[in-house]
Every structure is written in C-alpha cells, then in structure tokens.
Write a protein that binds this DNA or RNA. Structure first.
Lengths: 229, 229
DNA sequence: GTGCTTTTTTACCGTTTGGTAAACATGGCG
DNA sequence: CGCCATGTTTACCAAACGGTAAAAAAGCAC
C-alpha cells in the first residue's frame, strides 16, 4: 500500500527534524553542483543518512530541488524587500552603495542562494530539463520590480530595466562563481580582500551609469550623456 | 597490445576527417551541457557514430574536453587580438563600442565559446573536477592583458583591472546564458531584438565608468568622480 | 512484555555512465 | 587473391544513478 508520506503533520515527530536535515544538506549540495551533477547519494552522505530515506520525505529529486530553490528564492526576495525598504529614503547613489553592502554581507553569511542560481541559470537551450527553472527568471524579474520602485522616474523605463538586469546578472556572476573570479585576481574566494574587491567592482561599474540615468531624467536628453565639447 | 593511436600523422587518412567530426560534435554538446552532464554517447550521436569510436581518437572524455576548450579558448583569444588590433587607434570610448559590436557579431555566428565558458565557469569549490578548468581563468587574464594595452594610463591599474574583469564576466554571463536573460526580457534568445538589447546593455553599463576612469587619469583624482557641488 | 505506527536501513531494480576488448569492415598494396 | 594497417562497430564491464519494496529499528501506548 502506498501510504502518503504525511509530511505536513503538525506534531513534532522526529521526522520533521530529519526532513530539515535533508533540505539543509540538499541546499548545500545543490549549491555546489548543478542539478544533474548533484546526486541523491551525495545529499544523503551530507545529511548523514542513507539515500533512500530522502525518498521517504520527498517523492523525487526534482521535487526536492524545487523545494530547495523555492526556499532559496523566496528567502532571497524577502531579504531584498528588507534591503530596499531600508534604503528607500536615501539618495539614489547612496542607496546603491548601501544595497551593495547589504548584498555582500548577506552573501558572505549565506553563499548558497547565489551559488545555486549561478550554477543552474546558465543551462542553455534545455531549460525544461531543470525542474523549477522558471523560478530563476521570476526571481530576477521580482528584484527588477523592487529596484524599479525606488528609481523614481518612469520615462526611460527601458534603460532602467537594462541597468537593473545588468546589475543582477553581474552580481550573480561575480558572487556565484567566486572561485573563478577570485582566482583571476589571485585572491582567496572567501577572503576579506576579495570581498573588498567585489565591493569596489560593483560600485565602480554601477554608480556611473546610475548617475547618467538620473541626469538623463533631469535633462530629458536621450541616449547620450551630456557632452561638454 | 596497446598501440598508440598515432593521431598526429601527416597523411590525410580518413581518420582525420572523423576526428574533426568528433571535435565539432563535442564542441556542440559541451556548449549545451556542462562537463559532467554531457556524455560520450551524446557526442557520438551528434557526430553520427558509435560512442566507442571517440575513444579511438581521444583517450578519455577529459582529454576530449580539454582539446575542445583549448581550441575554443585559443580561437577566442585570437579573435580578441584581431579586435583589439583593429580598434587600437580609435578614441577609447569609440573603441569600446566597436569592441562590443565585434563581440556580438562573433557570438551570433559562433555561440559555442561563450556558452561553454558560462556553463563551466561557475563550478564552485570543486575546480579540479573539471578538466582543464585552469584555462578559464587564464583566458580571462589574457583578455584583461589585451584590454590593458589599449588603455593607456597605468596609474590606476587596479581600477582598470576591476573594470575589465567586470566587463568580461558580465559579457560571459549575458551572452553565455542568453536563454535565461532573454526570457526575463520576454525576447527570443537568437532574435535581432535581443541582440540589440545586449548591445544597449553593454554600452550603457560600461561606457560611463570608462569615461570616469579616463577623467580620473586626467585629473589625477582618486576614488570619487568629480563632484560639481 | 505485546501491539502498532513511524522512521531508517538493506537489498535490489532498470538505466545510464566512461571505458575496454575483440570482432568486423574498409582500403590500399603486392 | 592475400596481407596488413586503419577505421568502425558490437558486446561487454564495473560503477553510479534515481527510485522501489521489504525488512529492520525505534518510539510510544498499554
């Protein structure tokens, strides 16, 4: 008889803790290996259990992955909402630097989300082969909307959109593939030195075009920056 | 008896063509799937042969992957050398826009290199698990050096380095994961519309900080852009 | 202790993986 | 034709994969 797993029970049975152990382990493994490379046996080992136990709590690898990515995405969105709320009243350029600081703080303590994103976002044509892939574009769109709300003017919405997308994708690329990025710089991925490098990079790249966007708004000049000669 | 495969022979035996067919197929498969997900059987199918024939020409999957990535990296570096040579005498900002155009042209005709890079560059801690991984940081460093040569002033070398790294990693991220990027924009990955979006994005993001770098050089002011109030 | 449910492990299945060995096919040369 | 090197396929291997079924262990009520 195929009794349903009944994972949603209220009573604090032992299984609840095990389930959390599994999701925590899965989170780690899925943020180190892309979906098809990560295996149930890796996750089991990481959780200190035998791998079939995972199927007692989750019907399949795909559903486990979806659970983890859902958790990660909604958590990341929640954090973003907090950050955007905190910087709402700052001048726009200060807001950006504050946002960058918060993002780096978060990533230092909690590197899995951006790692998992970077690992699986690249999967080329074969989008449907990654369960819950749609969550990644959705996440980026949500962040974009949050960004949009604090950038006041709406006239050059397309430029703002481009700006935000570039920011998000570069942040994912730099923070999510830190081993490679750090290696090029001759730094350790987790070091304070590298984190400072990331801070400089994001500020240096994204402050100037942001100022341009604002200036364009004020001057209502389109396309090119003001050219004094 | 384990006779060496003798693949380096000069005479134009049939095997040479087969070998090229295999590398071409491998190039395609490795640019669609990350190393551990791509399989010898996929490559065989793509090449129209049985998969053990691959092992007749290449001792292992790892060496085949190394061969392909070496080809791709050196080809991409060669192209970059050409591009940088062509734009050497342009004003620095024009040089950037020209470079971006050439990069997009190249990627439209030849999407494999940046796809393969994006697919495998993210592999987190487990760097050694991808054969020839070192080629990726090396490639990025080479491009950085080419960039460096045409940006004349050396005083803020670190800022120039940050700028170039950000450009390269964002280009790889945007061009190498076009399906996801395009999907967020509601566009088709291969469409002219999306290509124009990429052009706008790279120009909009990387022109302003480049102007800043140049201004900083001129004014020998460090860190902050000139602030008129 | 006996029962009964929940949790965990063991043993296994069919499939796919990278790779090897041997059989087979091909082509040029005498 | 035979001979032989080259090229290609067939058949197979051990290992790992995701998943299932049943046995075993643990927990709890009585």
């Amino acid at each position: 008889m195929t009794t349903k797993t009944q994972t949603g029970n209220i009573r604090d049975k032992k299984g609840i803790r095990t389930r959390e152990t599994i999701t925590r382990a899965a989170r780690k493994v899925f943020s180190e290996y892309p979906y098809h490379t990560a295996s149930m046996r890796m996750i089991g080992k990481e959780a200190g259990i035998e791998h079939p136990l995972i199927n007692y709590y989750f019907p399949s690898k795909a559903r486990l992955f979806e659970t983890v990515t859902s958790e990660i995405c909604s958590e990341f969105i929640r954090r973003n909402e907090e950050w955007f709320d905190e910087i709402r009243n700052l001048k726009i350029t200060d807001a950006l630097t504050s946002y960058i600081d918060r993002l780096l703080d978060y990533n230092a303590e909690n590197p899995e989300p951006l790692r998992l994103l970077a690992l699986n976002i690249t999967q080329a044509e074969h989008i449907t082969q990654i369960p819950g892939y749609q969550q990644f574009p959705d996440l980026i769109e949500k962040i974009q909307q949050l960004f949009m709300k604090i950038i006041p003017i709406k006239s050059t919405a397309q430029q703002v959109s481009i700006y935000i997308n570039s920011f998000v994708f570069l942040a994912i690329a730099l923070l999510g593939s830190s081993p490679c990025v750090a290696q090029v710089q001759g730094m350790e991925p987790g070091s304070a030195q590298f984190r400072e490098w990331l801070r400089s990079a994001l500020n240096m790249i994204f402050l100037p075009p942001l100022k341009d966007i604002i200036n364009i708004q004020v001057n209502t000049v389109r396309g090119q920056k003001k050219k004094s000669e």
